[in-house]
């Protein structure tokens, strides 16, 4: 199918881009376009104008920044997946981004675009949430930091304001002793996750000292499995971990769609959290 008409601008700076977006509430930012283009082709969206930020050097690249990794909004999935900085500093991001869509889409699709799209079925939002990433929003007024917990507001809705673009994401590095796993459950390789679990786990003497768990597609936004995280603190691998992971779906409101009903998603969240935690803990 064919997109409806829109205007197109390619600003030369972030400030100019923000100005374009601020002056027209129906304008949309275009980065890689891998989420936006299918929407436009199916005429599910009618932006007045696309503001092409895809060439803004300020938003590119992956940067080592001491206690965190800064991933520019325009870093492609492929770039992030192969980045030594990411693989060393925040391996969970590398594990998850490798499972986003397919190779061709990963070449064009951007890290920032995927997060700003705020699709709870996407793989990256739950990861950002689990790692307490900090989102850097740029506007004409300058930059603003948004903690991950406040970034995802509702289904396909972030807390970015009109005139703001996502400039990059700071992923705090976790110290030694942490293990990671992203468990994606989908019916075919191309299909969206029915449920996904992003787990970061710190082990200490055969038990779990600390766990952070983000859930994909278990509600209108990505969610943290707070109850399971609490129950996992101090849990020994084995039955204790299993019981703790049974709390994974507590408080979630998973969607009903073609591929799964809420009760099945809750069940999956429990099983997959167990698997993700065990894998992250290096226990297979």
């Amino acid at each position: 199918m064919i997109p409806a008409q829109f205007d197109y601008v390619r600003p030369g700076s972030v400030a100019e881009a923000c100005r374009e977006l601020a002056s027209d509430e129906d304008a949309k930012a275009l980065a890689g376009g891998q989420s936006l283009l299918p929407f436009l082709r199916l005429r599910l969206a009618y932006p007045s104008k696309l503001v092409d930020i895809g060439r803004l050097a300020e938003l590119k690249g992956v940067h080592e920044r001491g206690d965190h990794v800064h991933i520019g909004a325009l870093a492609t999935h492929d770039e992030v997946m192969r980045s030594p900085v990411v693989n060393a500093g925040c391996p969970l991001v590398a594990l998850a981004v490798a499972q986003v869509a397919d190779p061709a889409i990963r070449h064009r699709g951007t890290f920032g675009g995927s997060l700003a799209h705020a699709d709870p079925a996407g793989d990256l939002p739950a990861v950002a949430l689990a790692l307490d990433a900090v989102f850097v929003a740029a506007s004409e007024q300058g930059e603003r930091e948004i903690p991950a917990a406040a970034f995802f507001v509702d289904y396909l809705e972030s807390s970015l304001r009109q005139g703001e673009i996502l400039a990059g994401v700071r992923i705090p590095k976790l110290g030694a002793g942490w293990g990671f796993h992203y468990e994606k459950f989908h019916r075919t390789a191309q299909a969206w996750a029915i449920v996904g679990v992003a787990a970061a786990v710190r082990r200490s003497n055969g038990s779990i000292a600390e766990a952070r768990i983000g859930l994909t597609n278990m509600g209108p936004t990505p969610v943290r499995a707070h109850a399971a995280e609490a129950a996992l603190r101090g849990a020994e691998l084995g039955d204790q971990v299993r019981r703790a992971c049974a709390e994974a779906a507590a408080g979630t409101a998973p969607p009903a769609d073609l591929h799964a009903q809420p009760d099945y998603r809750r069940h999956l969240a429990e099983v997959l959290t167990g698997r993700a935690v065990r894998a992250a803990a290096g226990a297979g």
Partner: peptide, 11 residues
Amino acid sequence: MADYLLPSAAD
């Protein structure tokens, strides 16, 4: 094709 699932080589 996002809803009607056709298998790829990976499936």
